[in-house]
Structures are given as structure tokens and as C-alpha cells.
Design a protein around this nucleic acid. Structure first.
Length: 493
RNA sequence: CGGGGUGUAGCGCAGUUGGUAGCGUGCUACGUUCGGGACGUAGAGGUCGGGCGUUCGAGUCGCCUCACCCCGACCA
């Protein structure tokens, strides 16, 4: 085994450190000089781009269009919706001045005190307020509805503690903001979008998720209901991976957005918002990766197949290149992204290890030996299995293999998730089990007080009230009061 | 903002009772190599985070300061 890999912190030794090292060694991202911020490197961004493109296509199929709203939000906008202020008033970056000037003492530049803004501007932590401030002008009649708009943007939340991809001060995301004429329509859209996220997570990220609704305390500030997809990471902690909020008429009320309905009566607009962020990158990394590095599901891998030639001299390189050329064309024709890495400044062993760390799903190695035998060495990243196969028909073989890897990754993750999901009936069992990680299904009396008590005593939170699964009533494990159904608990990121 | 820790070569680190700076890796050049992170030879690279003090002399001791990391509070 390569020595760099030997130096890799093992998942079992220190999960956080393993994660951080992996992000850097797989060339995904690095800490930036700016506090709490991250530089996403080209390879990491390529994965994000692939996620973006896939999601964007899925959004568009449901009639959503993209738009862009300003980065800066007048402070007064944030004050409009009372609960929203509660949730977001605190950790925000604030623009107070609009000009710099030369320091009279000659130490570079200083903020010009004369350039103080009349009203401070907030760097958006989310865009509901600026968007609803805008929608007010767009919506007059039921004929203007629905408005189905999404924006791809960066947002900033001045987080106390940050972790690359999982929680950074600035992060990339998409936020959809829909306006509807009826409560029913808005609710349907809210659920449609959380289901879309679940499909994306499972089909593309190969990450099984639990779809559910948040408890009152975990709900988005200003929403009447928050839907979530919850995934389980390999260290037994839960990760909220996407949310969809039914905002009722709260924002319409706050920003005075009314329309004339079919009965010619003024009515407040019904709203929902939904989003996923670069946090999905963290989810992807933590769901599949192993002690050898990143493992990417083929559907999201920027490079699905890498071909590494093994040769001694220019003549040998040429012979392999000629052999590989038709295969490259054939794979590309099938829509498979393939890289033929014949760079001669790195040795084959280095490349093997490098692409392994980067999580490329399939690797082919081709040398003199193979040219003579008409074979090729093939390795799949998910199981690290190597086999020597006939070069003829290899393209079809690869095509099937990629699908097999995709399927295998999902099944492996699902198996782990299911094995780590426990139903418990007593609070003592709960306390014991939560230490071991995983999802816990337990009865809860539905009160914020009990939820708070559990959180304080065990650090576990209610991840969601699942939309599916066991719906038999029972008794709250803490208070013994009636419980409508089991809810999902876990310690979370 | 509490509690703990670390600042020495690009990165990771060592540096003893104070005596003038070292290892690994990476980098550059050349040669031999190339089927799992090659090897040899030569070379470049440091205000020891910053300031003040003690001392003949400070990476090392004292005080101050700054930055970053980890554990909490906050959170997608």
C-alpha cells in the first residue's frame, strides 16, 4: 500500500480528522485564509457542478425557472417577519460602510467614517425577505400565479464553528421560492420538492434518506411546516441534507403580497421555499468513502473511468494510445466520461493511488502484457476488486459495471442505515443506544418540553417525523403520555 | 464568549541544562527507472507568529499581543 495512504487517518481512529484529510487529499477543497470559509477546488467543484446540473434539470421538469436576487438585503426587510428575525437576526455579516480611504498614518486603507450607510445591509443568510419584497410587485391577480422560481446563489451565516462542506460561513446552494394561489397547491409543491430531493439523493448520490416533517422547534424560522430528508453518516450521526418549507401566508403577510382571486376578492399569497446546499458534498463524502479515500457514485463522478497506460518508452506509449483510442470514442459515445491519463511526469503506481483517493469508480490499466494477451486490468473503486478481462467488448462491460457500482453503493449504504436504525421503547434503552450512534425510532408525546429534555440529556434531536413507516400509536418513552407514532431521533451534524 | 491546545522551510514535525537551526516529505536539475505512491547524485528553500524584557548570548526563560485548531453555546 502506498505510503501516503498509510498516513491517512483511519475512519475508526478519528472520524473528523479522516474527513478533513480526505477533503484535502482528494483535492476537493481547502480552508481559505478567510475565517470559516472554504476554497472549493476544481475537482470538488466539478462534482458540485454535476449535482447542480442534475438538480436543475429536475427542477425545470416541474416548471421551475431560474432567477437571481441581490446579495445584500436592507436590514429593515429582515425585521418584517417576526419569527424569521428570531431565527436569523444573529449570525449575519453586516455592511455598514460603502467606501474606504487611505490611512492618514500610511498603513494601507481604512474604512471612511464619512461613508456610513443610512441603513445597514445584511449579507443574505437566505433570501426569503428580498424575494418577497420583490414578489409584491410581480403579483396582482390569480393569473400571475403560480410563480415558480429558483436561484443558485451563495449565502453567508457567521457560524461559530465551521467544517468544510458541512458548515462553512459562506456556502453555495439553491433556494426555490414559490408563490401559489391556494394553500393546497403550495402544500403540494412543498411535498413535491422534498420528494424530488429524496429521489436525487437516492438515485444520484446513492444515499438513502428518510423523508419526514420537522418538529415545531426544529422548524425553519417563519414556516408553518418544514419537510426534511435525513441521511445517516458512517459515524452514526445524522445529516439534514435538504429541506422544503411550507411558509403559509406568513411572508405574504409580512411583505403585503396580495392578489385578487377568482372571486374578485383580495387574498394573501401562499408560499413555500426549498433548498439544498454544498452540504450535499459533505453528505456524499461521508456516505461512501473509505480508508483509501473518496468513493464516488458513477452518476456524479466527474471522471467515471480512468485509463492508465503502463509503458517503458515512447514506442510503448504509442502502441497503447492507438489501442485505447477507439475505446475512448466508444465510451464517449455511450455518454461515459473517461480520462486517458498518459501524462509521463507521473508513474503508474502514483496514478493508481491518486485516482483511488479521488474516488474514480472504474480504473483500467493497460500495459505491454495486455497488448500481447488482448486483455485489460480493471478495478472497481467500491470494492477495490481487480480483474483481468478481455479487451473486446470492454465498453459494454464498463457500462454495466458503472450501473452495478451505483446500485451497490446505494445498497451498501442502505444496509448500513437499516442496521443502524433501532426501535426502542424505554428512555433507558434510548440513552444507551444513542451512545452507539444511529437512528432511533421512539415514541414521543409531541411536546417541545420533552424534546428539549431529551436534547439536553442525550444531545439527540428529533430529526423528523417520518412520512412513511410504522404508524402505530404508543406511549412517550419519557413521560408515558400518548404518542401518535414513532419519530426519528439521532445525534446530528 | 467560556475551557483546552498549537505557532520553527511549501506541508508534517524534532529541537535536551539557554551557546547562533535540523529531520521527513515536497520542490529544481541530471541519470537510471516505469504492472500499486521509484532510486541515486547534486541543489534551492528560515527575521523560529509579533513585541517588550532577563542575559555576554533566547527557538528555548518571563510578560504582553496576534493568528489558527479542538471541545461547548449557534447552525443547512
Amino acid at each position: 500500500m502506498a505510503k501516503e495512504l498509510k498516513n491517512f487517518t483511519k475512519r475508526s481512529d478519528n472520524y473528523s480528522q479522516w474527513y478533513n484529510e480526505l477533503v484535502v487529499k482528494a483535492d476537493l477543497a481547502e480552508q481559505s485564509a478567510v475565517r470559516g470559509c472554504m476554497v472549493i477546488k476544481p475537482y470538488g467543484y466539478a462534482i458540485w457542478e454535476k449535482m447542480q446540473q442534475t438538480l436543475d434539470g429536475m427542477f425545470k421538469e416541474t416548471g421551475v425557472q431560474n432567477a437571481y436576487f441581490p446579495l445584500l438585503i436592507p436590514k429593515s426587510f429582515l425585521c418584517r417577519e417576526a419569527e424569521h428575525v428570531e431565527g436569523f437576526a444573529k449570525e449575519c455579516a453586516v455592511v455598514t460602510h460603502y467606501r474606504l480611504k487611505n490611512d492618514p498614518d500610511g498603513n494601507g486603507v481604512i474604512v471612511d467614517p464619512a461613508a456610513k450607510l443610512e441603513e445597514e445591509l445584511i449579507v443574505r443568510p437566505t433570501s426569503e425577505t428580498i424575494i418577497w419584497g420583490t414578489y409584491k410587485n410581480w403579483i396582482h391577480s390569480w393569473r400571475d400565479l403560480p410563480i415558480l422560481v429558483n436561484q443558485w446563489a451563495n449565502v453567508m451565516r457567521w457560524e461559530m464553528r465551521t467544517r468544510m462542506f458541512l458548515r462553512t460561513a459562506e456556502f453555495l446552494w439553491q433556494e426555490g421560492h414559490c408563490a401559489h394561489a391556494t394553500a393546497d397547491e403550495s402544500q403540494k409543491r412543498t411535498v413535491e420538492m422534498i420528494n424530488l430531493y429524496a429521489t436525487f439523493a437516492e438515485k444520484y448520490m446513492a444515499m438513502p434518506v428518510i423523508v419526514g416533517v420537522k418538529s415545531e422547534t426544529e422548524r425553519f424560522a417563519g414556516a408553518i411546516n418544514t419537510y426534511t430528508i435525513e441521511a445517516l453518516m458512517q459515524d452514526g450521526k445524522a445529516l439534514q441534507s435538504g429541506t422544503s418549507h411550507n411558509l403559509g401566508q406568513n411572508f405574504a403577510k409580512a411583505f403585503d403580497v396580495t392578489f385578487v382571486n377568482k372571486e374578485n376578492k383580495p387574498e394573501l399569497v401562499w408560499a413555500n421555499s426549498w433548498g439544498v446546499s454544498t452540504r450535499l458534498m459533505g453528505a456524499l463524502i461521508m456516505t461512501h468513502s473509505d480508508d483509501n479515500g473518496l468513493v464516488l457514485p458513477p452518476h456524479l463522478a466527474p471522471i467515471q473511468v480512468v485509463i492508465i497506460p503502463i509503458y517503458k518508452d515512447e514506442e510503448g506509449r504509442k502502441a497503447i494510445a492507438e489501442k485505447v483510442e477507439p475505446l475512448l470514442a466508444e465510451l464517449k459515445k455511450k455518454g461515459i466520461s473517461v480520462k486517458f491519463d498518459d501524462a509521463d511526469n507521473k508513474r503508474p503506481g502514483f496514478k493508481f493511488a491518486d485516482y483511488e483517493v479521488k474516488g474514480v469508480p472504474v480504473r483500467l490499466a493497460l500495459g505491454q502484457r495486455d497488448l500481447e494477451n488482448g486483455t485489460v486490468e480493471l478495478m472497481r473503486r467500491d470494492t477495490l476488486e481487480k480483474e483481468t478481462v478481455s479487451f473486446d467488448g470492454i465498453a459494454n462491460h464498463i457500462e454495466n459495471l458503472l450501473e452495478d457500482i451505483q446500485k451497490n453503493l446505494f445498497e451498501k449504504a442502505k444496509k448500513y442505515r437499516d442496521e443502524m436504525t433501532y426501535a426502542v421503547d424505554t428512555y433507558d434503552e434510548f440513552k444507551e443506544q444513542i451512545e452507539k450512534g444511529g437512528f432511533i425510532l421512539a415514541h414521543w408525546d409531541g411536546t417541545p418540553e420533552t424534546e428539549e429534555k431529551i436534547k439536553n440529556e442525550t444531545k439527540a434531536t428529533i430529526r423528523c417525523i417520518p412520512l412513511e413507516g410504522d404508524e402505530t400509536p404508543g406511549k412517550c418513552m419519557v413521560t408515558g403520555k400518548p404518542s401518535a407514532r414513532r419519530v426519528l431521533f439521532a445525534r446530528a451534524y
